[in-house]
Measured scan of single mutants.
Amino acid sequence: SISSRVKSKRIQLGLNQAELAQKVGTTQQSIEQLENGKTKRPRFLPELASALGVSVDWLLN
């Protein structure tokens, strides 16, 4: 799922939720909701993929 991929990649990069949120241009709460499965397809998906160094396709599939 996107939530597990985001969380595992974030941890692999040594980032906390607030640091990832800053790179993406969103809030820590938005990252938390995404990782908890409350958000399925965030509006900041391209920025998120870029910050994590992955493709949008990788996040979604």
Score class of each variant (00 low, 15 high):
residue 43 R to N: 15
residue 50 S to T: 13
residue 43 R to E: 14
residue 12 Q to W: 09
residue 57 D to Y: 12
residue 15 L to I: 09
residue 36 N to Q: 12
residue 2 I to Q: 03
residue 40 K to H: 15
residue 26 T to G: 04
residue 61 N to P: 10
residue 19 E to L: 06
residue 52 L to D: 00
residue 54 V to W: 03
residue 59 L to T: 01
residue 14 G to L: 05
residue 17 Q to L: 11
residue 24 V to E: 01
residue 37 G to I: 03
residue 18 A to V: 10
residue 3 S to K: 06
residue 45 L to R: 02
residue 8 S to H: 13
residue 14 G to P: 00
residue 42 P to N: 07
residue 16 N to E: 09
residue 38 K to A: 13
residue 45 L to A: 06
residue 20 L to E: 01
residue 7 K to H: 08
residue 36 N to G: 10
residue 23 K to C: 08
residue 17 Q to I: 14
residue 16 N to G: 11
residue 57 D to S: 13
residue 19 E to K: 05
residue 60 L to F: 08
residue 2 I to N: 02
residue 14 G to A: 06
residue 7 K to P: 02
residue 27 T to V: 05
residue 54 V to H: 01
residue 51 A to F: 08
residue 2 I to L: 15
residue 6 V to P: 02
residue 2 I to K: 03
residue 16 N to Y: 04
residue 41 R to N: 14
residue 57 D to K: 11
residue 19 E to Q: 14
residue 55 S to M: 05
residue 32 E to Y: 09
residue 47 E to I: 08
residue 26 T to W: 05
residue 50 S to G: 10
residue 37 G to T: 04
residue 55 S to H: 08
residue 60 L to M: 12
residue 36 N to V: 09
residue 44 F to N: 07
residue 59 L to D: 00
residue 52 L to H: 00
residue 12 Q to C: 09
residue 25 G to M: 05
residue 7 K to E: 08
residue 11 I to K: 10
residue 12 Q to V: 07
residue 25 G to D: 04
residue 15 L to A: 01
residue 19 E to A: 09
residue 18 A to Y: 14
residue 59 L to R: 00
residue 22 Q to L: 13
residue 4 S to C: 13
residue 44 F to G: 04
residue 59 L to C: 02
residue 41 R to F: 15
residue 21 A to W: 02
residue 4 S to W: 13
residue 27 T to P: 05
residue 25 G to Y: 04
residue 56 V to N: 04
residue 31 I to A: 01
residue 50 S to L: 15
residue 7 K to T: 09
residue 35 E to F: 01
residue 19 E to I: 06
residue 1 S to C: 11
residue 32 E to G: 06
residue 30 S to C: 14
residue 7 K to D: 01
residue 43 R to H: 15
residue 37 G to D: 06
residue 60 L to T: 11
residue 53 G to A: 06
residue 28 Q to E: 12
residue 25 G to A: 04
residue 11 I to L: 14
residue 10 R to P: 02
residue 61 N to G: 15
residue 55 S to C: 06
residue 47 E to T: 09
residue 8 S to A: 14
residue 53 G to C: 09
residue 33 Q to P: 00
residue 58 W to D: 04
residue 58 W to C: 04
residue 5 R to V: 06
residue 37 G to H: 06
residue 11 I to G: 06
residue 11 I to T: 10
residue 36 N to D: 10
residue 55 S to W: 04
residue 6 V to D: 02
residue 8 S to N: 13
residue 6 V to N: 01
residue 58 W to L: 03
residue 6 V to G: 02
residue 29 Q to K: 13
residue 8 S to R: 10
residue 56 V to I: 15
residue 4 S to Q: 15
residue 27 T to I: 05
residue 18 A to P: 05
residue 59 L to H: 00
residue 54 V to E: 05
residue 36 N to L: 12
residue 3 S to G: 15
residue 44 F to H: 06
residue 33 Q to F: 13
residue 50 S to C: 09
residue 17 Q to K: 08
residue 33 Q to E: 15
residue 2 I to M: 13
residue 26 T to R: 06
residue 44 F to R: 05
residue 49 A to M: 03
residue 44 F to T: 02
residue 3 S to T: 06
residue 32 E to M: 07
residue 36 N to R: 10
residue 36 N to F: 07
residue 33 Q to C: 11
residue 25 G to I: 02
residue 25 G to C: 08
